[in-house]
């Protein structure tokens, strides 16, 4: 399990490195918002996940608040991918900076998702 933690932290560092490089190489710090977006993406799901599930319903069954959390999470993730694309389309940032920030953001979000998936079972046993 320690190897998984080291690997995940390494991937997270690479993701942030890519995003910061995409800003610093062209001295345009707008793509840094992508990092903020992807860090905030799992937050609505985490907040609303505790709502709506009671003793009589299973986890897979949806409820209103849980659906709202998933909806906002999906919106934020799509925002993180669309924002650099739009900046590149309007020629505000370089296309290479767009690609680097998207890849970096994907790595950061993938790290958060896989971390949550890998360590969920331990909290359930408690």
């Amino acid at each position: 399990m320690a190897a998984a933690v080291i690997l995940l932290s390494f991937v997270l560092a690479v993701g942030f490195l890519l995003i910061i490089l995409s800003c610093a190489l062209w001295a345009n710090w707008l793509p840094l918002l992508v990092a903020l977006t992807f860090v905030l993406a799992p937050l609505p799901n985490a907040i609303f996940a505790r709502c709506g599930s009671d003793d009589f319903s299973t986890d897979s069954e949806g409820s209103g608040p849980a659906d709202l959390g998933r909806f906002i999470t999906s919106m934020v993730v799509i925002t993180g991918f669309a924002f650099p694309l739009i900046l590149a389309h309007a020629e505000i940032i370089h296309p290479a900076a767009c690609a680097m920030s998207i890849i970096g953001g994907g790595l950061v979000y993938g790290t958060i998702l896989s971390y949550a998936a890998a360590f969920r079972h331990e909290s359930d046993e408690f």
Partner: peptide
């Protein structure tokens, strides 16, 4: 629900 949220964000972007 995930697809609906993605479509909604895509629309505005």
């Amino acid at each position: 629900v995930y697809i609906a949220g993605g479509l909604f964000a895509l629309a505005h972007w």
